[in-house]
Design a binder for these strands. Sequence first.
DNA 1: GAGTGGTCTAGACCACACG
DNA 2: GTGTGGTCTAGACCACTCT
Lengths: 263, 263
Amino acid sequence: MGTTQAAQGNGAAVADAPEPKYWHLRTVLVRALDSEFSAGEVLPNERDLSARFGVARATLRQALDQLELEGRLVRRRGIGTLVAAPRMGVPVAGTTGRDSWRIVDAGYAPAPAAVAATLGVPADESVHAVRRLRLMHGQAIGAETLYVPETVASHVPAIFARSSIADSSRARSVLRQLQRLELDGESRSVELGVAEEQQARLLERPPGTPVLVLTTRYQAQGGTVAVAVSTYRADMCRLTFGASGVVDVAPAEPVAAEVRTAS
Amino acid sequence: MGTTQAAQGNGAAVADAPEPKYWHLRTVLVRALDSEFSAGEVLPNERDLSARFGVARATLRQALDQLELEGRLVRRRGIGTLVAAPRMGVPVAGTTGRDSWRIVDAGYAPAPAAVAATLGVPADESVHAVRRLRLMHGQAIGAETLYVPETVASHVPAIFARSSIADSSRARSVLRQLQRLELDGESRSVELGVAEEQQARLLERPPGTPVLVLTTRYQAQGGTVAVAVSTYRADMCRLTFGASGVVDVAPAEPVAAEVRTAS
DNA sequence: GAGTGGTCTAGACCACACG
DNA sequence: GTGTGGTCTAGACCACTCT
């Protein structure tokens, strides 16, 4: 090494698979985290770490980015980089379950196009929208917006019925009516997304934070009577489905299972 | 701008929320993608784009990283950056469903600690492991490893019974026996992960690719008789649950729903 | 003020796919 | 060879938190 470049400096395997430095670093750090650190501990700062490993800070950060995506690190501006606690198992309730939710606000406005289509209402028709936060251990881990057409939640007090006043009276009223419905069931989907400004603020994270987007369609009378779009912090949550909403035992972390593949 | 620095150059909002350049760029690009591009189109190359927007290439790439995480872009080395097709709805079958799976191989080896614990077998005890690929439209979208204790799949032909020979005979035998079981149900969980070398190879993606990790616990006779760990490409998949495994209509993309929040 | 992570730059080389 | 994305560097400033 002489010039300015670096790219695949390649410290370990000599000439096989040009493993990127940041990926190798990640592997090293994973091992260190597993053996020498426990949740809540503070890592050395990025400048020290990058010096210790002989890489540029940007490269080190690329490795830390990965680990943060995996939920193994938490970085706090002005504080440092901490070892994250294991992900929480977040039950996805069989019904509009009885968990710790905190109502944020509610309104009456046109739903996003995709939601309107699912609900089978005209694209520009206003619906009730309830926004709430999901809490766990006093932590905001998810933000949800629940969309309910007026035809479903028709008994909203007259004061709110067609206004766009936002408060928790409307929210409570809408939720109550939804719970009273005889639901045929729910269908759900999960995908990866990033938090936009609004969600990011609710989750107390910067915009762009990866989130698990859970979309729930509440079915009744042969149609979809409500849609909920929830965004859960991908770094902290493991969404759990299934008959029992109980705490689950296995974190299922070792993705790269070793399976003997030859004689 | 005169010196070398840049940081919060802040092109738009003058003095309000110091929005990072890359985030602003992302917003601009999202709009462009929505209005001026369609799936499969090739974007201008990164050097041109960064010049056009007056930012460093690294900054542009930060914006593209976000869009790729959201599954809106696909970057192919040596080719270019393409507009991604909308995510596929991937049904998570109610049972060991009849989808397009391709058996990769199978083996007999100790399961990862977490899996062993869930199965209720000693940590060092060998279990059957079947690895298969999930295909959709001829595309590999997920890789799964299924762990079945020997006590459950006991009728494996003698030739494979306790050897570590890996082939599809063992795989088929194990799958057949699992399907014949009377299952009480399955419980599942979904979390975000990154593909390690092995999975990455199967999914034809570089290591570190974000994946949705789906863990399925098959219940029978009051216990867990098998565990499957599946990793799905997070950029291409939307995992769908629910009574009907049918194609779903609403992509639920607009996460940042606009809810009137004041008078 | 000192220390931390977050953002940004300018320039370089590498690995890959194509003609 | 040419063009593309992928990796890496060295150095800088910004925003935040704590003392």
